[in-house]
Simulated scan of single mutants.
Amino acid sequence: MSITVDEISFVAGDTLIVNGISLAVEKGKVLGLLGPNGSGKSSLLRLICRLRKARSGVIRLGEDDISAISRAELARRVAFVEQQSTTETQLTVRDVVRLGRTPHRGLLNSWAADDDLRVDEALSRVDMRDRAMQLWQTLSGGERQRVHIARALAQSPSELLLDEPTNHLDIQHQLDILSLVSKLGITCIIALHDLNLAAMFCDSLAVLDKGKLVAAGAADTVLTEGLIGRVFGVRAHVERSSIHGRVHIQYRMS
Score class of each variant (00 low, 15 high):
residue 43 S to V: 12
residue 43 S to D: 05
residue 43 S to E: 04
residue 44 L to T: 07
residue 44 L to A: 06
residue 44 L to E: 00
residue 45 L to M: 03
residue 45 L to R: 04
residue 46 R to V: 08
residue 46 R to Q: 14
residue 46 R to A: 06
residue 47 L to T: 02
residue 48 I to F: 07
residue 48 I to L: 12
residue 48 I to R: 05
residue 50 R to A: 07
residue 51 L to F: 05
residue 51 L to R: 13
residue 53 K to E: 11
residue 54 A to H: 12
residue 55 R to W: 12
residue 55 R to P: 00
residue 55 R to I: 02
residue 56 S to N: 13
residue 56 S to T: 13
residue 57 G to A: 03
residue 57 G to N: 03
residue 57 G to P: 03
residue 58 V to H: 08
residue 58 V to G: 03
residue 58 V to M: 05
residue 59 I to R: 08
residue 59 I to Y: 08
residue 59 I to F: 12
residue 59 I to G: 05
residue 61 L to R: 10
residue 61 L to A: 03
residue 62 G to C: 03
residue 62 G to F: 10
residue 63 E to L: 13
residue 65 D to F: 11
residue 65 D to G: 11
residue 65 D to A: 13
residue 66 I to Q: 08
residue 66 I to E: 04
residue 66 I to N: 07
residue 67 S to E: 04
residue 67 S to F: 07
residue 70 S to V: 06
residue 70 S to E: 05
residue 70 S to T: 14
residue 70 S to I: 05
residue 71 R to L: 09
residue 71 R to K: 14
residue 71 R to Q: 10
residue 71 R to F: 01
residue 71 R to N: 13
residue 72 A to K: 14
residue 74 L to P: 10
residue 75 A to C: 12
residue 75 A to Y: 10
residue 76 R to L: 06
residue 76 R to C: 12
residue 77 R to V: 15
residue 77 R to T: 15
residue 77 R to S: 13
residue 79 A to I: 15
residue 79 A to Y: 11
residue 80 F to Q: 01
residue 81 V to K: 09
residue 81 V to Y: 04
residue 82 E to I: 10
residue 82 E to W: 03
residue 82 E to V: 13
residue 84 Q to R: 15
residue 84 Q to K: 15
residue 85 S to W: 06
residue 86 T to A: 06
residue 87 T to M: 12
residue 87 T to D: 11
residue 88 E to T: 14
residue 88 E to D: 10
residue 89 T to N: 01
residue 89 T to L: 11
residue 90 Q to F: 06
residue 91 L to W: 11
residue 92 T to I: 03
residue 92 T to S: 10
residue 93 V to P: 08
residue 94 R to V: 02
residue 94 R to E: 00
residue 95 D to L: 09
residue 96 V to S: 07
residue 96 V to M: 09
residue 96 V to R: 02
residue 97 V to H: 06
residue 97 V to T: 07
residue 98 R to L: 10
residue 98 R to K: 14
residue 98 R to W: 04
residue 99 L to I: 11
residue 99 L to M: 14
residue 100 G to V: 03
residue 100 G to M: 00
residue 100 G to Y: 01
residue 100 G to Q: 07
residue 100 G to R: 06
residue 101 R to H: 08
residue 101 R to V: 14
residue 101 R to Q: 10
